[in-house]
């Protein structure tokens, strides 16, 4: 498209993009401007349509609420921390299981004295029964 700027191409250009050179394709702008200056081209129709379009009301700006919602939807850093959090959680669960299992195997009530008694060797017996 940028090869040559003839009347046909120039007319196609303003039919699509209007009369304002800032909206023309950058790679054709210089050639189109030069053509416009050298040729008798009536741009009033294109100017009028540009002016029609510019009469359209400006869009409302995005609301504060929308911007707040977008900020709340931002990706959370926790996503990256997920493996570490999962590892910690696994450790905690493992700890609970081990603790619970040990609790099940632990001696209950009257057996405690017996266990304590067997936890010491015979030399301690003398010390324990020192008063007797």
């Amino acid at each position: 498209m940028a090869d040559e700027m003839g009347k046909g191409r120039f007319e196609a250009l303003i039919a699509a993009y209007g009369a304002d050179p800032k909206r023309w394709p950058a790679e054709e702008r210089e050639a189109a401007l030069a053509f416009a200056q050298s040729a008798e081209i009536d741009l009033s129709e294109a100017h009028a349509i540009d002016a029609l379009l510019d009469l359209a009301p400006a869009p409302m700006p995005p609301s504060e609420l929308l911007q707040a919602r977008l900020m709340r939807s931002l990706p959370k850093r926790e996503v990256r921390l997920a493996p570490a959090v999962a590892a910690l959680a696994a450790c905690a669960v493992f700890g609970l299981i081990v603790g619970y299992g040990a609790g099940l195997n632990a001696p209950m009530g009257a057996d405690v004295d017996q266990v304590l008694a067997t936890a010491f060797d015979s030399s301690d017996q003398g010390w324990i029964g020192e008063d007797s």
Binding site: A16, Y17, G18, I49, L53
Partner: peptide, 20 residues
């Protein structure tokens, strides 16, 4: 794209010929 733009602009001009 240029065809869409040209047709759109022409349609707008036709619809609003008095304003144009």
């Amino acid at each position: 794209l240029e065809s869409l733009l040209a047709r759109g602009r022409r349609a707008l001009r036709d619809a609003l010929s008095d304003v144009a």
